[in-house]
Design a protein around this nucleic acid. Sequence first.
DNA 1: CCACGTTTGAAACAATTGTTTATAACCAGG
DNA 2: CCTGGTTATAAACAATTGTTTCAAACGTGG
Lengths: 219, 219
Amino acid sequence: MAQNDTVTRILDTAEVLFAERGFAETSLRTITSKAKVNLAAVNYHFGSKKSLIQAVFARYLDPFTERFHGALDDLERRYQGQAIPLEELLETMARSVLEVPAERNSLKVFMRLLGLAYSQAQGHLRRYIQQDYGSVFTRFTELIRQATPELPDAERFWRLHFMLGTVIFTLSGLDALRDIAEKDYDEHVTVRDLVRRLRPVVVSAMQAPLPAPPTAREA
Amino acid sequence: MAQNDTVTRILDTAEVLFAERGFAETSLRTITSKAKVNLAAVNYHFGSKKSLIQAVFARYLDPFTERFHGALDDLERRYQGQAIPLEELLETMARSVLEVPAERNSLKVFMRLLGLAYSQAQGHLRRYIQQDYGSVFTRFTELIRQATPELPDAERFWRLHFMLGTVIFTLSGLDALRDIAEKDYDEHVTVRDLVRRLRPVVVSAMQAPLPAPPTAREA
DNA sequence: CCACGTTTGAAACAATTGTTTATAACCAGG
DNA sequence: CCTGGTTATAAACAATTGTTTCAAACGTGG
């Protein structure tokens, strides 16, 4: 199948280049020449560069959200209305993240793309992701809420984003960090190693004591 | 003084635009028109766009590193060779970060720039920062090492970067997150609020139990 | 085999980018 | 005052960008 082949080659090449250099820094000519397709093919098949970017994300996020929803279904069935422990929820999320790129490209690319979606301005991207994939995140946070009833809502909100930062920042900058780590501690880290290290850190962070109330002179 | 005025206006405008949209997405024409200076002024005073980017960083990092070094000097003098407690070190870093932009622009811009330095490819930037400001980071990590002797070196390395991600991600995305937080919990968060919330989270994260050793099937 | 919608191909387009050039304005020191 | 180096200005440059165009090739259903 000719079209599908062209479309796939564009997506495969684009996601790697985007992950390496960002969206604005990756030209369509770079993509199409590396993918060995005609320059006009991108606009023909995707309409625009913006749509290509969204298509790259969709190819990761569609299977991920489906799998994650399924995993949450299992979990809720297993716990029958009781609150699901925090560790279970985090574990489930980690597993869902780890599984998806196995059937696609590398996890590194996936994480790097997520990091870019947050850091690059690209307003259209954040809007697109929020609109199409926000529901699974809402569902997850609600379960987290039930798992951490002792936390005030605002505190939990911020801590979730603290941890989101930890994960995205680390995994999306993995290559650079891995180079340093290997040189200094000659240890070859895999993504799975990192997830293993992340687990106790995230759990402890979420269960940290509440902050002291603001002092008077901070007002 | 004419030159200084032009140079300052360029830097003031550039740092805001860079923080808002990233480096590649901000053209020299946008900067110079908003700053009301001639387009050629950037190349005349800075040489190139790359150098302008570095100059924007230097204007934040120079006073920061000086202040931070000074604060660490005080701390070491006060503790006379004994290990400085982890909380003190983190507190000192937080204070140094909070103080600097007070004499310059907003902390938000500073954090956003730091986030960009990591996320945008811009190889030259990371190299420049590492080369010119790496020493204070090295000094800080060594003190952290003495404060957390129970942590294996590699584990501490990764946890420090976990926390770096937490801080940079949260503070650099502050605007978007603040909007959500205000709408959902009608709470007006300041940067100082966030630092207060971050403190116990970071401490707990650094002191989390060590991860379980990798299981056999993960090899 | 032919006709028709789909896909590819090479070229051109218009807009934008960073940088350079040459000229003018400025502003001190003699 | 005017002269010499510094700064400002407008214009042009060359390169690169995303997108469009239109003709050629393709491939499938009649």
